[in-house]
Structure formats: C-alpha cells, structure tokens
Amino acid sequence: MKAAPFAYHRPASVDEAVDVLAAGDAKVLAGGQSLVPVLAMRLGRPGTLVDITRLPGLDALSVSGGELRLGAAVRQRRVERSAEVADVPLIGRAMPFVGHRELRSRGTVCGSLAHADPAAELPAVAACLGATVEVTGPSGTREVAARDLVTGAMTTVVGADELITAVRFPVARAGDGFGFAEIARRHGDFALAGVAVHVVRGGAATLAAFGVSDRPVVRDVTVGHDPTEAGLRPVTDALAREVVDTAGDAHASRGYRARLLGVLAARELVRAHREAHA
C-alpha cells in the first residue's frame, strides 16, 4: 500500500502548473483524499504530482457579484466553517455528508468536482445550482457550466493539460429553498442514492440526483402550490425510474436505488418548498 515512485512538483504559478501538466504523465494534487488512495493501491502511477495547494490566489474564498467563488486550494472544512457558506445554504447542507471531518480538513471543493465520482455530493450541488467552473490550460482560462463538466464516471471535460482553478456558486436569493439528503450504508460512505434540490418560490424546482448514474443528473420539476410528500411521489418515482441507470450491486439493486431516490426527492422537495415560502 505504498505509492509507486513519482516526482513532486510544487509550482510557483498556475502557468507553471499548466506547463508541467502539458508535459504529460502528471496529475494535479490538491487535497489528495481521492487521488492518494488510488496511488497507494497502485491503481494509478503518474510520473509527476503537481501540488497546487500553495499556489498564490488559489486559496481565495470570496463573495462578489452574486456568486461565492472558491479557489482550487480552498478546503472543504474551511468552506463549511466560513461565514460565507450561509450565502449558499445548499453547500452547508451537503458538506457533512462529504467523507468525514478528517477528510474534509484536507479535501478541496474543486478537487471533488475534478475527481467526479458518480456518488460524490459536491458535483451534484454544483450541477443543481448551475455553478460555473473555471478551467485553466495552455490557452488561458475558460468557463464550463458545472452541468457540462462531468462526462462519465470519474471523467470530466478538463483536459490533461488543464486544471480547475475555481468554482463559482450563485448566491441564494429571497424565496429560494433548498434540500439535500442521501442514503449510504454508513455515514461517510458513498451514497447509494442522493438528491440536491432547489425550489424557487412559486413552485419551479431543480433536482440533481447522484449515486444513481455515471454523473449527476439534473431535472426540472414542478412542485405546485402546496406539495406533500405523498402527492409528489408519483412524480418523483417516475423521475427516479427514468434517471436511475446504475447497475445494482451487492449493496443496492437498481430498483432499490430508484425507490430511495423517489422517497428522498419527494421529501426534500417538500422541505425546500416550505423553506422557499417561509
């Protein structure tokens, strides 16, 4: 369980990081809470790790222009404890489910997006809220909608010579309500099914399901004026049957995951609707 030998590169600038990545056979090391286990098991053996956690500017956490912007070196636990997280309540709801305290103290928000585990919470939050991801490569920085970021299990549109440098979440407005829930076998495990929801006063809602496909699945839902869990179940159950396309495994069949998603979605939509109309 020791990583194969690799060169360690701590660049002084994002440009230098991009140069090292562009040279090939290199991976970005941020929090390392997903990457290092892969190295320890020798399921991956990149020639170079590019440690971006000390790059100037990447540790910035700020709110401006109606957006919460998190640099690539901003750790999950710092976000969770920050005053600014109140501006994007869905992050605060989701964060306790991300691994454990001991992992969030090192893990980064952008790293979770870049790793794109199908059962990860933060890519679903970013997709639900319509966050914007800043991706920097040899030709500069481009913006990618979080909903377009993930293209498959642990696969994103970020090129081998690019890195995510920041993510911007829209700040909640009056009349917004949120919900987040997941079911895992033990706290901190990857979710068997989970849901992040955003309801706007008036009834329009966005739902992002995770752990049930190879990427977060975003759907618009209409919840009406006075939704109840029982009343929403036909809608969420049908939605769950449509979006759950992961295979079953020893822990949860496909049908069970769909059942979980239908229940969680209805419950959280009602909760978010109540919050939006409070």
Binding site: P118, G152, F190, D245, A247, H251
Partner: peptide, 9 residues
Amino acid sequence: FGRALAGDV
C-alpha cells in the same frame, strides 16, 4: 477498490 461503478462503466 471496487464498488458499484461497474454498471455505468
């Protein structure tokens, strides 16, 4: 390392 990524993958 394995878990239920199998179906999608």
